[in-house]
Design a protein around this nucleic acid. Structure first.
Length: 498
DNA sequence: CGTGTAGCCCGTAAGGGCTACACGGTGCATTACT
């Protein structure tokens, strides 16, 4: 047994790596900046935890969600690794101070891109040895870094300030364009790409045209009534998710809940846990749902509207069938589908005149914080203000060209991504294979062995009846005896806490 | 762009029909207050 496998066994208790892990571990241990794709549930955290344990210094992990950080830290602690902590706004003043003091003793530090902007934190990190700089869910850099969470685009600078430690960016789904964007934004030069196919052969692809919104809702009820669950229904708006959940619950009596970013953290956590523990049949959600939800047996994912990007679509349908069993994804489309997404993009966009006006207004502003305040006073939303001030400071040194660049950045990027998604959805008008069409956006071709696979897509002879509930029980996921018992225990302890 | 709703008209009154208008996703952090 070589050293690596020996360490794998000793620290994690595994005798072999999962697909793709070993390459990634070796790559970073060789000191190579690496951008890697690994299927969700494929054991991403091991890819930095094992190298971290085998080298001196601290592993710094940038993570997009507070809940993900908490999960990871807890898992490490449960495995007996106490030198792990998360640093973010969920902490009190005292806790933050404590972590800053103990920083050099940590093996794994999880942090949000925003918290990593803190000068105090950076100064402390500069005095330490960072063995590995990790960006988890690295597609967020490209997906959010340009507008929604600009601090993601500043990770490259931070990395440099920390003396450019070995960097590892991890994601499950990214087009070639996104992978390049990630490397560029992180300022990686000689980067090694460890890529696998984004294809998930056990997820059948079905697209279906309906008349209008009423038609979608009607068809959806029909589908969830028949399909074997559990399932996810992705909706474009919070309201739609709530109404659908109500309607499904009423008409099918299946255990249905909704989930979106407007709910408080406790409710969100509860729904997520219930879904994972098979106490719900269906969750109607917005794009807020999914990251960090590692449920193996989701049998279908239905979209009642176009997602905004192909990558979002991939991520979302990819939540089905993690156990490798046959699952199905269904996109219900209707003529005016682009409308909502277009509008969502537009509400954050600014006109040329507004940009000119605001550009003048910011002339004397010194820092981003001041800029944001001033912009919000001018009536911009929080997101708009952050986006604009980010672009302002990025381009202002270019003088006259700056405004034009800001204008282009604000308008086009997201529009283009939506165009591609809408372009893909038009595939129903051809006779082509959906899977081939979809993979082409990732510069992939369908690997051999597909012929005769009727579970591929609508145009390859997919039969939705194969995904319907069979057997006597109208509801899936009847709890087994021990699960029920466990539940009573949990419920009891929950009551005590409340 | 599409949907839902508030408010108006009509005028036996009630409620149907119309127009105008608002609204729409993703999460970090931070603040001053009860």
């Amino acid at each position: 047994m070589d050293k690596l496998h020996e360490a794998l066994r000793r620290h994690f208790g595994y005798t072999s790596f999962k697909k793709g892990q070993e390459e990634i571990v070796k790559s970073v241990l060789e000191g190579q900046d690496t951008v890697a794709m690994l299927p969700t549930g494929g054991g991403k955290s091991l890819c930095y935890q094992l190298p971290g344990l085998l080298t001196d210094g601290t592993v710094l992990i940038v993570s997009p969600l507070l809940s993900l950080m908490e999960d990871q830290v807890q898992q490490l602690k449960m495995r007996g690794e106490k030198r792990a902590a998360a640093y973010n706004s969920a902490l009190t003043h005292q806790e933050k101070e404590y972590i800053l003091k103990q920083l050099h003793r940590l093996k794994f530090l999880y942090i949000s891109p925003e918290a990593l902007q803190s000068e105090q934190m950076v100064r402390r990190l500069q005095t330490m040895k960072i063995s590995l700089f990790v960006v988890d869910e690295a597609h967020c850099i490209s997906q959010w870094g340009h507008d929604f969470r600009p601090d993601y685009s500043k990770l490259g600078d931070i990395k440099k300030k920390l003396g450019s430690p070995v960097t590892l960016a991890l994601t499950a789904t990214a087009t070639e364009e996104t992978l390049k964007d990630i490397s560029r934004m992180l300022g990686l030069n000689e980067v090694r790409y460890l890529i696998h196919s984004v294809d998930r052969p056990n997820i059948a692809l079905h697209l279906e045209e309906v008349q209008d919104t009423a038609g979608k809702n009607e068809r959806l009820i029909e589908l969830v009534r028949k399909l074997q669950g559990p399932g996810l229904v992705y909706c474009p708006t919070r309201k739609w998710a709530e109404e659908l959940a109500g309607k499904i619950a009423e008409e099918t009596r299946m255990r249905t809940e909704f989930y979106h970013g407007g709910m408080d953290a406790g409710d969100r956590m509860l729904i997520q846990q219930q879904f994972i523990r098979n106490q719900l049949d269906i969750v109607c959600c917005t794009n807020a749902f999914g990251m960090g939800v590692d449920k193996p047996d989701v049998r279908y994912v239905i979209h009642v509207n176009l997602p905004q990007t192909i990558e979002a679509y991939m991520q979302e349908i990819g939540r089905a069938g993690r156990d490798g069993k046959q699952s199905v994804s269904i996109l219900l489309k209707a003529p005016g589908d682009r409308g909502i997404q277009e509008q969502l993009i537009q509400t954050e966009a600014l006109t040329r005149q507004t940009i000119d006006f605001l550009y003048e207004k910011l002339a004397d502003v010194r820092d981003e914080r001041g800029a944001r305040e001033s912009l919000e006073q001018s009536g911009l939303t929080e997101t708009q203000a952050r986006h604009f001030s980010h672009l302002f400071f990025k381009f202002r040194h270019l003088g006259n060209k700056a405004r034009e660049l800001i204008y282009q950045e604000m308008d086009f990027r997201r529009q283009q991504k939506l165009n591609k998604m809408a372009g893909f959805a038009q595939i129903t008008e051809s006779k082509g294979c959906f899977r081939e069409g979809l993979l082409s956006y990732f510069n992939e071709t369908l690997s051999a062995g597909k012929s005769g696979n009727t579970a591929c897509c609508t145009h390859c002879g997919l039969n939705l009846e194969d995904y319907e509930t069979k057997g006597d029980h109208p509801f899936m996921n009847q709890l087994t005896a021990w699960e029920e018992e466990l539940d009573t225990i949990f419920a009891a302890s929950r009551d005590r806490i409340c």
